[in-house]
Simulated assay, not measured.
Amino acid sequence: MAELNIFHYIPQKSPVHNMDARIKLICMILLTVSAGIASKTVDLSILTCILFIALIVSRLPIKNLLLEIRYFLFLIGFVIVVNSYSVPGTPITSIPIHGFTWEGLNFGLRYGWRLILIFLMCTVLTGTTPLFLLKSVIEWFLAPIPWVPEARVATMFSLTFVLIPLVFDQASEMQEAQKARCIEARKNPIRRVMSLIFPLLLHTFMRADEMVLAMESRCYSEVRTKAVFKTSTMDWLILIFSGLIFSMIVFHRF
């Protein structure tokens, strides 16, 4: 079975791949925070355009990434339903269930929009930056902070970046296996979800234990060769542009 593209590094020759990883991480943080605090449709539309430009320039498989967003649709749908029911306003009379409002539905859709933007922005970072560079960037930023074991913290982050795509790959593989065994034909949705969650958690913990044993058997050490970073003029221009977008959205928000 083919691996998922989301949260995987996809080697390409593109300007986004060639960016300084430090600048790329700062830009991602600025844009994700902007997506999290954006309250107007215009701001979310601008961020969406920037995101699709980044996806096109980085030559990532946009169609596959959008299809893989379906794994987050349950969370997004749950957020929309909760906001539609909890936010007071004009009732939606076309729905037989009492308590849903148009204002809550509008707020929930905007919240789901923000979540999709944040997921895809993180995908741009992980899809265009090798894992060892992400680890080196985190270590570089933490090095000036006293009493912080930057190498150990960076290793923890890198292991997290390793496990997240493995969990998605395992979930996709288990779903295909369950389809072959007609588990989806069960009428009880709770049993269908439980039949996926428990084996997935078991395999995740087993994979984590195997990774720890592999690192110990290879005498893993925190003393590693430092990465060399190079910053170009284009990197600084992109950073300034991201800062301006962040400032504009903060101004609109507050």
Rank of each mutant, 00 (worst) to 15 (best):
S136F: 07
S242W: 04
C122V: 07
A151C: 08
I95R: 01
I183E: 00
L120T: 13
S232Q: 11
S217W: 05
T101W: 09
A214R: 00
E222V: 10
E176F: 13
A2I: 10
T129K: 00
N18R: 02
E173M: 12
T155N: 11
K24W: 04
I56T: 01
G127H: 07
Q170S: 08
V212F: 13
S14N: 06
F157M: 09
R191K: 13
F229P: 14
L239Q: 08
A21F: 14
T123E: 12
V250R: 09
M28V: 13
M121A: 14
I97G: 02
R224Y: 05
C182F: 00
M211T: 12
F254W: 14
I80Y: 00
I92C: 00
L166Y: 15
F168S: 06
H203E: 14
I37N: 01
R22D: 00
G243C: 02
L200Q: 03
I46R: 05
E184G: 06
T233N: 05
S158A: 12
I62V: 06
T204W: 14
F7S: 01
A38K: 02
K40P: 11
P91I: 08
M211D: 13
C49F: 06
W147S: 09
F229V: 10
P165C: 02
T128H: 06
T123Y: 07
Y85G: 02
F100P: 13
R191Q: 11
V162I: 07
Q178G: 08
I249Q: 12
L44I: 08
V82Q: 01
P15S: 12
L163Y: 10
S195T: 11
